[in-house]
Amino acid sequence: MTQFLIKDTLIPPYMAFPRFLLDMEQLSETAKILYVLLLDRARLSQKNEGWVDERGRAFIFFPIKDLAETMHKSEMSVKTALAVLEKTDLIFRKRQGPGLPNKIYVKVPPEYLVQTDRNLSLIQTETYPSDGQETVSVRERKVSGSNNEKNNNKIKKQGSKADRTAYGKYQNVFLNEKELAQLQKEIPLYREYIEKLSGYIRSSGKRYQDHAATIHSWYTQDHPAPVRRSYECKEDESL
């Protein structure tokens, strides 16, 4: 028995099917569904403590037997699908030792990541085009044409400095030697942040005047300084 959807119909929890899987003809349907299942579990790891390694990467444990039962497939089918996903660099398996399940890291192509800026509204994050074309944020639409022209001129001047080198998959993150050295010193995962910024600039069309400052800002937001507690008291008080 099925029912029609109405305005107030509540949809039960679901798993997201990444759009890029539609273009990966080398993957079987079993491999695609398996990836969706692993991605769903990995998203839970992102939200829970203890499921991130020393490099900040989320991982999961999902034994082959359990995967086979969940997907209603044979263990051999699951093993084959896992091998294909690993070959296409969509997952990485790290062995833990005899009798222990592998750590599974789920990976996503950088060009399909949506790196939401803390200053962007929900409406802005939903305006990313699906065909790869550049878009203009809501905030930028409200700026007059003359102001946009002034801002673009400033960005062009900033990006035209000859001492900067292009980094990232799309060669659109510009840093000079001093900035790169500072990132290497202060941010352990600086390469990942460079790739995140490169993918975000490509997908959103957003521009930044200072790419090094943007990376520092993102890292600070993701790794806030611990709160310092004061245990001092006045002479007439006790702890």
Rank of each mutant, 00 (worst) to 15 (best):
L22T: 11
R202K: 14
E177I: 05
W51Y: 13
Y231V: 11
K157G: 14
K79A: 15
A181W: 00
L10S: 08
R191A: 15
R95K: 13
Q184W: 02
G56I: 09
I194L: 06
L37W: 02
D117S: 08
L39K: 09
D210G: 09
E192M: 11
S130V: 09
A212M: 05
M15K: 12
A68F: 08
K73T: 01
Q115A: 09
K157N: 14
Y128N: 01
R229M: 09
E140A: 13
Y35N: 05
G50Q: 08
R229T: 10
L239D: 11
D40S: 14
M71L: 15
L39G: 02
N148D: 08
G56H: 11
P98I: 09
I123H: 13
A181E: 09
A16Y: 12
E29M: 08
G168A: 08
T127V: 10
L39V: 00
P224E: 10
G159N: 13
A212D: 06
L10R: 11
L21H: 04
S137K: 00
D8P: 01
T220W: 01
V52A: 01
Q46I: 09
E232W: 01
L82K: 04
A225Q: 09
D66K: 07
D210S: 14
W218M: 15
E25F: 06
K103V: 01
G97A: 06
A58Y: 03
C233F: 09
V227C: 02
K65M: 09
M24L: 14
S203M: 12
R19H: 07
R202S: 05
L100D: 06
A212I: 02
S28M: 02
K65V: 07
M24G: 04
D23E: 12
E54G: 05
Y35A: 02
S45Y: 00
F4V: 07
L22K: 11
